[in-house]
Design a protein around this nucleic acid. Structure first.
Lengths: 344, 344
DNA sequence: CTGTTAGCGCATTCAT
DNA sequence: ATGAATGCGCTAACAG
């Protein structure tokens, strides 16, 4: 049976050993592995044979020391467990692989301290570029002097007063159009569920919500606005409060996936009570979710493509790396947030 | 305004420059950064000041070249876009961070060739350990000779005839218990939806399905068994075929999340037709999904904790790295797959 | 076409 | 408590 027992790691073979086995100099091995320019085909095959025999792998760290590209891109996201960011990372990985780069991945858990450590470590590992979903707060670790010109792309959010290439969602537009769907259907008491107000996307989505209301001569009713829910349980609790109001909202705008799920769970728990059932609210959810069409209340979705967001972020980065973008001028892209009705 | 323009990357400062600025030798800088043993406190603060002033970051690649640990763990998973693997990666990252290691992440997309390339690259980058969800097929790139003792942990699946530490789900038991729920409720015509038969977990889940049936004197009805669906659309199509049978199944065992979603979407499209509505099947889903309790048919879930699976995989790896496990003996852990009723 | 020399940034070893 | 020399594995620059 094949063995993969974990013995104490032994030394990897080096160019020298390959060279010795192939009866050439280390330089010839290096050249062969670099593509074989100026090496006789016959010698090349001797080298390749030696490589195979020794299971030789070039030491990428040593190469990067010698001035070659490290081939590494640092990616720091806030929560890998969120499918949204999983897909984002997948999009980044896809483009990075196309460019022959590898991903160094870190989870910040929305913690600025972790973010700072991650970025510092990434820089120490000589990453060629950074892609970051900023956690907010201090941005001094992202300044040009610290990064020494390592290209940086921000995704989903901006970082406080920092000039950098950025890919955003059209948060404002999406929230605006989603809220408008409710208003056009005649809803006037619209509840709002959102994240903590310090989060950039939350601010923007609330702005879109407000904008749509004001077009109809309304403004957010403080009694109906619940912000600050970061997880499903607290979102559910906020929804409960709204539904238990003497005059509950007839519709809900939920500013993100976690709030939507919490809201729907609360609705689910009220399905049996036939007397209240008719009064259950419609929902507009910023962020799509699977099986939205099977919900017991009308659901409208403000959608977006996380994977494509990752691809775009990565492309912006490689535009810098390949020098196809002039330095100095910063780009900002907003990705579309189409609205569609999952269940009328 | 703070600047982070992406100038062409300039050289990072080195120990030498820090040393010069602090008026000491490079060695003193190195020692200070390594903890400060045998360096006068006063000198240490001079060094730290110089570090701050220059925004110095130790070059980790150079350190690893000099024989220090690379601090890198290679993680290769099949599909980051799947929330299941996103959470798995999160669990790995969590434990790795606790041990001061960083994650090199690759997506294999179920492609053995990509897997091979990734592993080769990881080895070239001197990873201290590998965590892999194997794609199947040839395993020669995972052999001891190739890895040179780099510890390897397999997750979710085994690799063809390869002896290595492995964390698995209790696929067989979960499928068995899930199927039994249906049988005990009196179902006798039970449909099966599953992945391609070459996938390890699919084989095991089908085995559990069969075992439960046989306990009731039944065996899988070829007409009711649909395997090979890898995505929601084909799963939905398979479900359609089952429901359109002259004598359709009264319940469905779905062997994974993608098949469950596809099956439910097909059910959703038949909700309006009141005449058929009563005939809609119950579902048992291997893999949990959000809002399962809100489905229009009874749903039972075979659950598991992807993040914990990642944690366990990482812990197995670090048990090797810290030498707290004797080499030679391979471990295999099966994680529990509790069954619960989401909606009766 | 091929080999030799030298040095990337760091830390181990051995001096002082 | 500090410094000088040395070499990790690799490849650019320069011979030949």
């Amino acid at each position: 049976m094949a063995q993969a027992k974990s013995e104490s790691p032994m030394r990897h073979p080096t160019v020298r050993e390959v060279a010795a086995l192939a009866g050439v100099s280390p330089m010839t091995v290096s050249r062969t592995l670099a593509g074989g320019k100026n090496v006789r085909p016959e010698v090349q095959s001797r080298v390749h044979e030696a490589v195979r025999q020794l299971d030789y792998h070039r030491n990428e760290n040593a190469r990067s020391l010698r001035g070659q590209r490290s081939g590494l891109i640092g990616v720091a996201i806030t929560n890998l467990g969120n499918p949204y960011y999983g897909n984002f990372a997948l999009g980044v990985e896809e483009i990075a692989t196309q460019h022959g780069r590898r991903i160094l991945l870190g989870n910040t858990d929305e913690d600025p301290v972790r973010e700072r450590q991650l970025v510092a470590d990434f820089v120490g590992r000589q990453v060629e570029g950074l892609i970051l979903v900023p956690s907010g707060g201090d941005t001094s670790h992202l300044l040009q002097d610290v990064l020494r010109g390592t290209p940086l792309v921000l995704a989903s959010r901006i970082a406080d007063g920092l000039q950098a290439d950025t890919v955003l969602l059209d948060d404002v537009g999406g929230a605006y159009r989603g809220t408008k769907v409710l208003l056009e259907r005649g809803h006037r008491r619209i509840g709002y569920l959102g994240n903590v107000t310090s989060v950039f996307t939350e601010q923007r989505r609330f702005e879109g919500f407000e904008r749509a209301l004001s077009e109809f001569g309304l403004s957010p009713d403080p009694e109906l606005v619940k912000r600050g829910q970061q997880d499903v349980e607290t979102a559910r609790h906020a929804m409960r409060t709204l539904l238990d109001l003497a005059d509950p909202p007839t519709a809900i705008f939920s500013a993100n996936n976690r709030n939507t799920i919490g809201a729907l769970k609360e609705i689910g728990s009220r399905l049996d009570d036939a007397s209240r059932r008719g009064a259950l609210p419609s929902i507009v959810s910023f962020d799509n979710f699977e099986l939205a069409e099977m919900m017991p209340v009308p659901v409208t979705v403000v959608d977006h493509d996380a994977r494509e967001l990752g691809r775009v972020a990565a492309r912006m980065l490689f535009d810098r790396l390949t020098g196809s973008r002039p330095p100095g001028v910063v780009r900002r892209i907003e990705m579309p947030t189409p609205v569609w009705v999952a269940r009328a």
